[in-house]
């Protein structure tokens, strides 16, 4: 009995060490990928006075400030100051998000590139997938394929019982997306979903020839949402208006609201170059590379 127990402990600690090693390899691969492309790694504040206003992302209070839900606004300020290619890997925090695929504290990779849009980001994301799968020697065949591209509307038409429009009208967009559409995405190869309604992208530029749509995409692997990308909104007035709309929505739902980030809006007023940017969940990337079904498997202390 004692033997069996210690064998079990040994085996589980070996698999734990193995997953820590894999994660370390992944972090190194990510950094190498960006260094090779002349990106600079930045570290921006983790405690913020004014977290980015998003309709449904809540920040965790931290002694008079808030823990960042994303480094987005500070990174864009660096673009305004002249940085052209920047990336950051670090912890972000979102209140009440906890499940098999969520943790309130998680690791995010964000990168931004000036003088381009979300199409360039999509190409780089594909390169990043290939690079990581080769470096970690994992699922190379899967990740070497071109991304499947579907509009959100087509994805609903293909997989859901109701159309995108109906799901928005019926107020069950999230349920339909999560339970009917997402499980089919990224099965054979990574799937890129684009053409989101403009109302679902507070920080993204609108499509020039179709202003009801946003220049936003999400990428899915194995039904798991891995990354969200934008052609960044650079117009200060439009950004201010969207923040205010978001504040109004949150107020009407009696949820906590945050002040507008005036430093960020001032930076936009002074001028932000056209840019593309993306936020990618590193824990989830580790999950799809290792085949883990629960996010706790890729964290050093996943059960705490």
């Amino acid at each position: 009995m004692a033997n069996t127990l210690s064998e079990l402990t040994l085996r589980s600690s070996l698999s734990r060490l193995n997953s820590l090693k894999q994660r370390s390899d992944l972090l190194q691969a990510l950094r190498r990928f960006f260094w090779q492309r002349d990106f600079i790694e930045v570290e921006t504040p983790i405690r913020l006075i004014t977290p980015a206003l998003e309709d449904y992302i809540d920040a965790i209070p931290a002694n008079g400030k808030f823990l960042r839900t994303s480094p987005e606004l500070h990174m864009k300020r660096l673009l305004c100051e002249g940085a052209e290619k920047i990336f950051q890997i670090g912890a972000c925090f979102r209140e009440h998000e906890h499940g098999e695929r969520h943790r309130e504290e998680f690791t995010m990779l964000e990168w931004y590139e000036a003088h381009c849009d979300y199409r360039k980001i999509a190409g780089d994301l594909h390169e990043l997938f290939k690079f990581c799968s080769v470096e970690l020697n994992s699922r190379q065949e899967y990740f070497s394929q071109e991304l499947e591209v579907l509009s959100l509307e087509d994805a609903f038409a293909k997989y859901a019982k109701i159309s995108l429009e109906e799901s928005i009208e019926n107020n069950n967009f999230e349920e339909t997306l999560c339970f009917e559409v997402e499980p089919h995405l990224g099965k054979e190869r990574p799937t890129l979903i684009n053409d989101y309604p403009a109302s679902m992208a507070a920080l993204s530029r609108k499509k020039q020839n179709a202003p009801h749509l946003a220049e936003r995409f999400e990428v899915y692997v194995d039904g798991l949402e891995l990354a969200n990308a934008y052609s960044e909104l650079t117009n200060a007035n439009e950004q201010r208006q969207r923040f205010q709309e978001c504040r109004d929505l949150r107020k009407s739902q009696k949820r906590i609201t945050y002040d507008l980030d005036e430093n960020f809006l001032q930076a936009l007023e002074n001028g932000m170059p056209e840019a593309g940017g993306i936020a990618l969940g590193v824990d989830r990337l580790a999950m799809v590379l290792s085949g883990a079904k629960d996010i706790s498997s890729v964290l050093a202390f996943g059960d705490e």
Binding site: E54, Y56, E97, G99, L177, C178, F179, A201, E218, E225
Partner: peptide
């Protein structure tokens, strides 16, 4: 019990 949430959408508790 399952917690799901699209990155930008509302959380769904199923």
């Amino acid at each position: 019990f399952t917690f799901t949430k699209p990155g930008k959408g509302q959380a769904v508790y199923r």
